[in-house]
Deep mutational scan, measured.
Amino acid sequence: IDAAQIVDEALEQGITLFVVNNRLQYETSRDSIPTELLNKWKQHKQELIDFLNQLD
Rank of each mutant, 00 (worst) to 15 (best):
Gln25Trp: 13
Gln25Ser: 09
Leu38Cys: 07
Thr28Met: 04
Glu27Met: 14
Leu38Gln: 06
Leu37Gly: 01
Gln43Ala: 13
Gln5Glu: 09
Glu27Lys: 15
Asn21Lys: 06
Ser29Val: 09
Glu27Thr: 15
Lys42Met: 13
Leu11Gly: 06
Ile15Gln: 00
Gln46Tyr: 08
Glu12Met: 14
Ile33Pro: 06
Glu12Lys: 15
Phe51Ile: 03
Gly14Phe: 04
Trp41Gln: 00
Asp31Gln: 08
Lys42Trp: 13
Asp56Ile: 06
Tyr26Ala: 05
Trp41His: 02
Tyr26Lys: 01
Gln54Glu: 10
Asn21Ser: 07
Lys42Tyr: 08
Gln25Glu: 13
Leu48Ser: 00
Leu17Pro: 00
Lys40Pro: 01
Leu11Ala: 12
Val20Asn: 09
Glu12Ala: 12
Gln5Thr: 10
Leu37Ile: 05
Asp8Pro: 01
Lys42Asp: 14
Gly14Asp: 04
Asp8Ala: 15
Asp50Asn: 12
Lys40Asp: 03
Ala10Lys: 02
Ala4Glu: 07
Glu47Asp: 09
Phe51Cys: 02
Gln13Cys: 07
Val19Pro: 02
Ser29Trp: 10
Phe18Gly: 06
Val19Cys: 05
Asn39Arg: 10
Asp31Tyr: 05
Ala3Pro: 14
Ile15His: 04
Asp56Val: 09
Val20Met: 10
Tyr26Cys: 06
Asn53Gln: 10
Phe18Gln: 10
Thr16Arg: 15
Leu24Ile: 07
His44Leu: 06
Asn22Met: 06
Thr35Trp: 11
Gln5Tyr: 08
Phe18Asp: 03
Val19Tyr: 04
Ile49Arg: 02
Thr35Tyr: 10
Phe18Glu: 05
Pro34Ser: 06
Asp31Met: 05
Trp41Phe: 11
Ile6Met: 12
Leu17Phe: 05
Thr16Lys: 15
Lys45Phe: 13
Lys42Cys: 13
Gln13Tyr: 14
Val19Gln: 02
Asp56Lys: 07
Thr35Glu: 13
Val19Phe: 03
Ile6Arg: 01
Thr16Asn: 09
Gln46Gly: 06
Ala3Gly: 04
Gln43Thr: 11
Glu36Asn: 09
Asn21Gly: 11
Asp2Leu: 12
Ser32Asn: 10
Arg23Met: 15
Leu48Val: 06
Leu24Gln: 01
Leu24Arg: 00
Ala4Leu: 07
Leu55Phe: 08
Glu12Cys: 07
Asn53Asp: 06
Asn39Phe: 11
Val19Met: 04
Trp41Tyr: 04
Leu24Phe: 04
Ile49Ser: 02
Ala3Gln: 03
Leu38Asp: 03
Lys45Trp: 15
Val19His: 02
Glu36Asp: 11
Leu11His: 08
Gln43Asn: 11
Glu9Gly: 03
Lys45Cys: 13
Thr16Ser: 08
Asp31Trp: 04
Lys45Pro: 03
Lys45Leu: 15
Gln43Met: 12
Asn22Leu: 05
Leu52Pro: 00
Leu24His: 01
Glu12Gly: 12
Glu12His: 10
Trp41Glu: 00
Thr28Asp: 02
Trp41Arg: 00
